[in-house]
Amino acid sequence: MGVLLEVKNLTKKFGGLTAVNDFSFEINRGEFIGLIGPNGAGKTTIFNLISGMEKPTSGSIHFDGIDISGKLPFRIVNLGIARTFQLVRSFKFLSLLDNVQVSCLSKRGKAASKTIGTEAYASSILRSVGLIDKASVPPIVLPHGDLRKLQIAKAIGSNPELLLLDEPFSGLSYEEQVGITDLIKKLHSEGVTIFMTGHVLRELMALVPRVIAMHQGKFIADGPPSEVANNKIVLEAYLGKGEGFA
């Protein structure tokens, strides 16, 4: 199907700290990939670099053959990469419908919703994530699980080809995790390429056929979860921090 995202020798320094260190990988169209690593490994920074929220110190990022390193975030969204954030964020005085409609009003979202209009398009997204009953309320009244769903709903309003999910399970109960998992699986089956980080490794490892592992900004492993989970460096990285897969 071809390479969708190509990250080459990506480096990001914050002063003396190298958050991402000479990192390279490729993602093919239609893949479903996890990005793991202990706290502070640099996962969020990689997402920030891909989505244009941070500028790389060096290295390049190509999406669908286009060099996107250093482009403005909204342009990257309109090329087809949407993201969610590790800490939920929403437009707190807008209804859920409008929260989702904003991304439908992006250039790419508008093109996708041309036939039915952005409002109907946003409603259909809310329906597909199971929030349609709450379309007119502001996000403040939502429980955390629904807020996580809203994050995904907001991201898919721009009709992304590649969806970056930063810790989509964080802070969720088991039942809520199942709901989000089903949602992500559904999106993937509809053809969206998924790249996600996760702290709850068991869930993530059970979900994705391929994971990339990193530690202290550096690439350490790439492969099927069973392989990566038994990789010596990966185990050390986690065990060294007192965390494990069990």
């Binding site: 989505s51 403005l72 909204f74 929403s90 437009f91 409609q101 904003v102 009003l105 309003g157």
Partner: peptide, 24 residues
């Protein structure tokens, strides 16, 4: 209007608006 919705989204969360593909 939808313009109003976009302006409010910038007020509530500028980064989120940009991440929604809006030319803030």
């Amino acid at each position: 209007s939808k313009l109003g919705t976009i302006l409010r989204s910038i007020r509530d969360d500028e980064i989120g608006s940009e991440a929604s593909g809006i030319n803030t």
